[in-house]
Amino acid sequence: MTDSSATGRCDCGATAGPLGECADYFYAVLAEEQADPQMYRWHAVVVCAYLLQHPARAHEKYLDVQFRLLQLYLDKGLDALLRVQAHQVARNKHGVRSGYDMAPLADYAPLPGPGSPGPFRAGFSGLPRGDGGFVSDGHQAYGRRIHTIAEATVESWRTLTA
């Protein structure tokens, strides 16, 4: 991560917001969603988008799956993503197979790259946070903001193949 006190920018290229850099927003979202089951529905999208916007903080071997999960979410919606997640969790609990089942993600483009495409047109430091937290204007509005971040993330990664 770059030193935002010197540059005012996160390593993804975003300008720091009132809470600080993207990591500060990311951890605040994670903490808030623990107490809010409706907000938690977007957890996978939040994690995938954050790690794809900050690949230096991610495990490289998982970035391809995270990129494909965001594409699935953008293509088929949150409920479809939640079904794929539930399938993976059930599969892991039963120990039937090792590794990630890529079949539900086979139709989606692999992660372009190497590298990082930032800056992104939407990121975590742009998430509004009023006195009521990240969902002070409602869960659907929060979901739309997270959707915009997911779109910006996928769009930017796709520029690496253009």
Rank of each mutant, 00 (worst) to 15 (best):
C48N: 15
R129L: 09
D11S: 15
A14V: 02
R129C: 10
R158D: 10
G13K: 03
A122H: 14
E33S: 10
L69A: 12
V154W: 10
G126F: 02
K93M: 12
G17Q: 09
A28V: 06
T15P: 06
M39T: 06
T15E: 14
D64S: 10
C10H: 07
D79P: 09
D3P: 03
D36Y: 03
A16D: 14
T148I: 06
V45P: 02
L72C: 05
D3A: 09
E151L: 14
F134E: 05
W157S: 11
E60N: 06
A141Y: 05
G17E: 08
R129Y: 07
Q53I: 07
T153F: 13
F134T: 04
T148F: 07
D24E: 12
L69T: 01
H59P: 00
A103C: 00
A122R: 15
I146C: 08
P128E: 08
S125Y: 03
V154L: 11
L74Q: 01
Y40S: 12
Y62P: 00
C12A: 11
E60A: 15
A28K: 08
D24I: 04
C10F: 11
G13Q: 02
A141H: 13
M102G: 12
M39D: 05
Y62A: 13
L72S: 02
G13M: 03
G118C: 09
T148Y: 02
L105K: 07
A141V: 15
T161R: 15
A14N: 06
D107K: 11
T148C: 03
G133V: 07
A58S: 14
L127V: 08
G115Y: 09
T2N: 13
V45C: 04
A106M: 03
R121S: 15
I146N: 11
F67Q: 00
L63K: 00
P128T: 01
W157V: 06
G130M: 06
T159R: 15
V84G: 00
A23S: 13
H87P: 00
C12Q: 02
H54N: 12
Y108R: 01
G133Y: 05
D79L: 11
G20W: 05
Y25T: 08
L52M: 03
Q88V: 07
K76S: 14
D11C: 15
C48L: 01
A122P: 01
P55A: 01
F120K: 01
A49Q: 01
H147A: 07
N92L: 10
L74H: 02
G113W: 11
R41K: 14
F67D: 00
A44F: 05
H54R: 02
L82K: 04
D64Q: 05
D101H: 01
P112V: 06
V135G: 06
M102L: 11
G77H: 09
H94Y: 11
Y27G: 01
V96F: 14
G130I: 05
L51H: 13
E32Q: 15
D11R: 13
F134L: 09
C10L: 10
F26G: 09
K61H: 14
G133W: 05
Q34T: 10
A58R: 11
S156G: 15
A103W: 00
